[in-house]
């Protein structure tokens, strides 16, 4: 199979890569662009550890082909902090002990930011359903919900 040349933007930066036609965006990010923040927990779109945004839409990078992102804008966990300053969500996750092992954290941060971009004041129920596609096995989700709500509150106040 012949490789495909792709031009895209990742976290605002223009990037180019070549990939096989059947190569996932997740493999491209991790293996070709050196962005290992998105994790592969299942490869079948069930765990959400590879959550990224594609033209503003929340997707599992393992279910998107690298070949599909030509001309697109991709957002990953590496782009959430700006100029070395943590995003309120990132700070809240540390402050609220909302991570333990941390493997699900990148995906959950991307997903939670995607929700708050649309709905700055979600209810706990809305938040729990929005994050239902992101598995966390360490925390029982309790502190994750608390952290996102705290960040949302701070972002609304800012």
């Amino acid at each position: 199979m012949k490789s495909i040349h792709i031009s895209t933007k990742v976290n605002g930066d223009a990037m180019e890569f070549v990939c096989a036609p059947d190569e996932s965006l997740l493999d491209v990010l991790r293996n070709r662009l050196g962005l290992t923040g998105a994790k592969e927990g299942c490869g079948t779109g069930d765990c959400g550890a590879c959550s990224v945004t594609l033209n503003g839409r929340l997707v599992c990078a393992c279910l998107v082909l690298g070949a599909e992102v030509d001309g697109a804008e991709i957002g990953t966990v590496e782009g959430i902090a700006t100029d070395g300053v943590l995003h309120p969500l990132q700070q809240a996750f540390i402050d609220h002990a909302a991570l333990q092992c941390g493997i699900c954290t990148p995906g959950i941060l991307v997903a939670a930011k995607s929700l708050l971009d649309r709905n700055p004041d979600p209810t706990d129920t809305e938040l729990r359903y929005w994050l239902a596609g992101n598995l966390c096995r360490c925390t029982g989700y309790d502190k994750i919900i608390a952290a996102v709500q705290d960040a949302a509150q701070k972002m609304r106040a800012a």
């Binding site: 402050d95 941390g102 954290t105 990148p106």
Partner: peptide, 21 residues
């Protein structure tokens, strides 16, 4: 007390290196 974890920033920015990384 409840100080921040030392691995916190690495884990919220995607910098932490796991087995497959």
């Amino acid at each position: 007390t409840r100080p921040p974890r030392p691995d916190g920033i690495d884990k919220v920015t995607g910098r932490a290196q796991y087995g497959a990384d």
